[in-house]
Computed example of a mutant assay.
Amino acid sequence: MLDFIVKRVVQVVIVVFLALTVVFFLIRLSGDPTTLFLPPDAPKEQIEEYRELLGFNRPLYVQYAEFMKGAVHGDFGESLRSGEDALGLVMARMPATFQLAISALALSLIIAIPLGVLSAYKRNTLFDKASVGITVIGQAIPNFWFGLILIFIFAAQLKLFPSSGGGSVKHMVLPVITLALYSVSRFVRFTRSAMLDVLSKDYIRTTKAAGTPTSTLIMKYALKNSLIPIITLIALDLGVLLGGAVITEAVFSWPGVGRLLQQSLMNRDFPIVLAGVFIIAIIYAVINFITDILYAYVNPQIRVK
C-alpha cells in the first residue's frame, strides 16, 4: 500500500509541474505585459528600464528557472498591477469559488440521482428517452451560452435575480444553475448506466421474484450497489466544477478565483494566473489522489496498476 501511495504522490507532483510549465510558456504568447502598464507614447528607454525592473528582459529559460525556484517554496511573486502577493490574492478568492462549486455539485446530485434511477427503472419508456435526450443536450450546451440565456430571461426580462456580483443567495442562483448543467447531465447518464448494470444481476431478479416491494428493491439493493462508481464520479466532478467555475464566474462576475484569473489574463498579470493554475491543479490532483487511495483500500487489486 505504501508503494502505491508513493507512486500516486509522484504522479500528483508531475501533474502540477506540467500544468505550471505549460501555462508559464502559453501566457508568454499573449505579449509583453509592460506595454499595459506604461503610456502608449512611453519612450523606448523607459520601457526597457521597466522590463528590466520586472525581469522580463532576461532569457525565457532564466525566467522559467526563477519562477520554478520560487514556486517550490510557494512564492509566485507579486501582482504586476496591485503589488500584492499573488498566491495570497488567489487564496482569498477560493472560498467564493468553493461555495459556487459545492453548491452546483449538491444541486446536481439532488436532481440527477432520482432522474437517473427513474430512467433506469423505466428503461425504454417515453420518460427514459426524454431523460436521455435532455442529458445529451445538456452536455452539448456551452456553459457560457447557457449562462447568458439565464441572464437574459431571469435577470433582464423577469428581473427575478441579479445578473452579476455576489454576497447573497439570490446572486448564487443563476451561476449555480449554469455550473450544474453539465454535471446534472453527466450524473443522470452515469447513474442510469450503473443502475441498469445492477438491475440486470441475478440477485435482483431473485429478490424481485420473491415479492420484494419496488421501493425496497430500488433503494436497498439496486441503488446501494450502484453508489461506488457514482461516489467516484462525485469526487472527480468536484475538480471539474472548480475548473469550469472559471468561465461561469467570468459570465456572472462572481468574486471567485475564476473571475480573478479572467481579469489577470486580460491584464497579463502573470504571477496571479500562475498562482491560480497552481491552486486549481493542486486541488484537482489531490482529489484524484484521495479517490485512488480509497479505491485501492476497497479493492487491493488496483494497487498493482
Rank of each mutant, 00 (worst) to 15 (best):
R81K: 13
I113Y: 06
V246S: 08
K170P: 00
I293A: 06
Q99L: 07
P33G: 10
G244M: 05
L80M: 12
S131E: 05
A19Y: 11
V176Y: 01
Y297G: 03
L18V: 15
V72G: 05
I113F: 08
F25P: 09
P142M: 10
A180I: 05
T216W: 09
V277W: 14
L223W: 12
G138V: 05
K224C: 10
S193V: 07
T35C: 00
G83C: 12
V304S: 08
G88M: 12
Y203N: 09
K69D: 01
V304I: 04
G138T: 06
E66R: 15
P255E: 04
V176K: 01
I290M: 10
P213K: 13
V257W: 12
P95D: 11
A104R: 03
S82E: 10
L109H: 03
L115S: 07
G74C: 13
L217C: 05
F289T: 10
D237F: 01
I293Q: 02
L87F: 15
G70R: 14
M1G: 07
R268N: 07
W254I: 03
V277R: 09
A180R: 05
T34S: 13
W145G: 02
K224E: 09
R268T: 03
F187R: 01
G74K: 12
K208R: 15
L107S: 07
L89H: 04
V277M: 08
